[in-house]
Write a protein that binds this DNA or RNA. Structure first.
Lengths: 154, 154
DNA sequence: CGATCATTGATGACGCGTCAATAAAAATCT
DNA sequence: AGATTTTTATTGACGCGTCATCAATGATCG
């Protein structure tokens, strides 16, 4: 059923560049977050949506939904982050099953401390070296590939 | 020193698409490797270079070099893979510090079992939906960004 | 040659994420 | 209403990767 045809030279090289780029980019951004605010990438990802709400509170389900994460993953990380003082867990008044995640002052300070350098790094490492045409192509390509994947997984 | 300017709407969206695509792609490929040959992505990555050598043997240092991995990471994974029977560790005759990693028959069977479907999935999810122009743009873009990163980290 | 430094690899501790199981509450069905 | 199913969150076990540490060997320099 599957054709045993391997990737050709260009394909292998491009595929490797794609993966390497992501690794390098992740590594660089992660290192910077750690240096600037003592945050891991995942912790930063949790803090950002919280800091965008007026009260700094989100229901765990929503937070997990925005991040595209498993309930378990979020629960584990929130527990660790609670111990470090970045968030606090509260009961949900509307739904007794639910759990609310609240940004603490320390959490807000950390994310606000990290955000500017983080944006700047994304610009420096990703956006600045690219032309307008290239950015348009990337937008079209990424969206199309995501679309194909979603269609296929469904 | 850092301008506090956040990313604009297009930039945020493109950046998110970039990360989401990588996650989805990784997830899909990893799931397939696991299904086809019971291998994790990292295990597959280790087996591939080994299977490309005539004897199926590589020195740990070289293997780690090709993969761009930490010594520790490779050592841990090789230990687990040895326990599962995919590789075997041997002493290095030329350098008594060194350690050789040898592909076992089971390891070769696993990687040869997984490879065709893996290539096919990469084609289906990544290469097939893209035009020749887009692929050229991606090649240029990824190479340039990797170059910038390497230059900056140095 | 001998002292010092660099390289290679293994290991333990630790934080992380996935999976399976559990518990509790809400929604749904009869 | 009562039974069943679905949703929400937590927990424990486990494999994984990073970091710091260690041991052993090789390379370098005086």
């Amino acid at each position: 059923m599957a054709r045993p045809r391997p990737l050709d030279e260009h394909q292998r090289s491009l595929w490797k560049a794609y993966r390497d780029l992501y690794q390098e980019l992740s590594g660089a951004l992660h290192a910077q977050l750690l240096h600037d605010a003592g945050l891991s990438g995942s912790e930063y990802a949790v803090l950002v949506p919280l800091s965008h709400t007026p009260d700094g509170v989100l229901r765990a389900r929503e937070l997990g939904g925005e991040l595209g994460w498993d309930r378990s993953r979020l629960s584990h990380l929130v527990r660790r982050m609670e111990k470090r003082g970045f968030v606090a867990r509260e009961e949900c008044s509307e739904d007794a099953r639910g759990s609310m995640v609240r940004l603490t002052d320390a959490g807000r300070a950390a994310v606000e401390d990290a955000a500017p350098e983080h944006s700047e790094a994304i610009r420096r490492y990703f956006f600045n070296p690219l032309s307008r045409d290239e950015l348009e192509t990337l937008t079209a390509v990424f969206d199309r590939l995501l679309d194909h994947l979603a269609r296929d997984q469904a």
